[in-house]
Simulated assay, not measured.
Amino acid sequence: MTTATEQAWQLLEQVPDPEIPVVSIRELGILREVNESAGGELEVVITPTYNGCPAMDQIEHDVRALLQSHNLRARVVTRLAPAWTTDWITPEARTKLREFGIAPPGQSAASVVQFARRRAPAMGESVPCPHCGSHNTTETSHFGSTACKALYKCLDCLEPFDHFKPY
């Protein structure tokens, strides 16, 4: 028999990120925990990709509405610590981001003391183009379609693309 917690995890796999709908909130690492109280209420813990992320209200609404539609009582808690890191993005999400045209961040951003400051790729690092795979790219704006992404351009295929900032 499936527990309410297991059912919630399965259902929440379906909740897309409102800004990047090809990935789920679990795949991005926004969905952190699902806990069940003795009274049977679920607590769903989410962490924003950055403090002040405008999508969090929509994510909270989507989580609550989905669980409620399956008769699961839940409260949604936003937890800021530990701070979200791009290391929490699953390998599947990195593939989906690339296929969607967003260059995923490199691994281990947080483990190199990066989570105290956001950074662009260091000198010598390249961001591969998600369209053609070329490393001949350049940052055109430190802020892309959302504050957690930078805008890049491929100098070979000339296509612009977002790059998920590593932090």
Rank of each mutant, 00 (worst) to 15 (best):
L12E: 01
A116S: 11
I30G: 03
T85M: 00
V23I: 15
E33Q: 14
P54H: 10
S108I: 01
I102D: 04
Y152P: 06
V15M: 04
R79G: 01
F115R: 13
M123F: 08
F115E: 12
T146Q: 05
V77Y: 00
L12A: 01
P121Y: 08
D62G: 10
G144V: 02
I20R: 04
S134C: 10
I30P: 01
C157V: 14
R32W: 02
C148W: 10
Q107H: 12
A38V: 09
V113S: 13
H61I: 03
R118T: 07
I46K: 02
G39T: 12
V44R: 03
G101T: 09
P18K: 08
F115T: 11
I102T: 10
P166Y: 13
W84T: 00
C129V: 10
E99V: 05
G39Q: 14
H61N: 08
F115S: 13
F161E: 06
I89P: 01
V34W: 06
L67H: 06
C154N: 10
L67V: 11
G101W: 04
V113F: 13
L28F: 12
H131L: 08
I102N: 03
R118D: 08
G124R: 09
A120H: 07
V127A: 11
H70W: 03
A93W: 05
G39D: 14
E33Y: 10
T2R: 07
D57W: 06
G39F: 04
W9P: 00
L155V: 05
S134K: 07
V76N: 02
C53K: 05
Q7T: 13
S134W: 06
R32K: 14
A81W: 05
A150C: 09
V76F: 09
D87M: 11
P16T: 03
H61W: 08
V127I: 14
W84F: 03
N71Q: 14
I102H: 01
V23P: 01
E125K: 09
A110E: 08
C129F: 09
Q7L: 10
G106Q: 03
D62F: 13
E159P: 01
E13W: 04
E125Y: 07
P82F: 03
H135C: 05
G29E: 00
H61E: 10
C148F: 11
I20P: 01
E6Q: 14
Q107M: 07
P128E: 12
I20N: 05
A65E: 15
R32H: 04
A147C: 05
T47C: 08
N136K: 09
T2Q: 05
T138M: 12
N35A: 15
P105L: 12
L11S: 04
T146C: 06
T47Q: 04
L28I: 02
T137R: 12
Q114I: 04
A4H: 14
A83K: 11
P91D: 15
P160Q: 09
V44Y: 03
L66M: 12
G133Y: 08
K96T: 12
T137E: 07
D162E: 15
I20Y: 10
V127S: 07
S37E: 14
E99R: 14
G52R: 09
S69Y: 06
P48D: 05
V44E: 04
Q68K: 14
R26G: 11
K149R: 15
L97K: 02
Q14P: 00
I25R: 03
D156E: 15
L42E: 09
H135G: 12
P48E: 06
A116R: 08
Y167N: 06
D162N: 15
H61F: 12
E13F: 02
C154T: 10
C148E: 05
L67E: 05
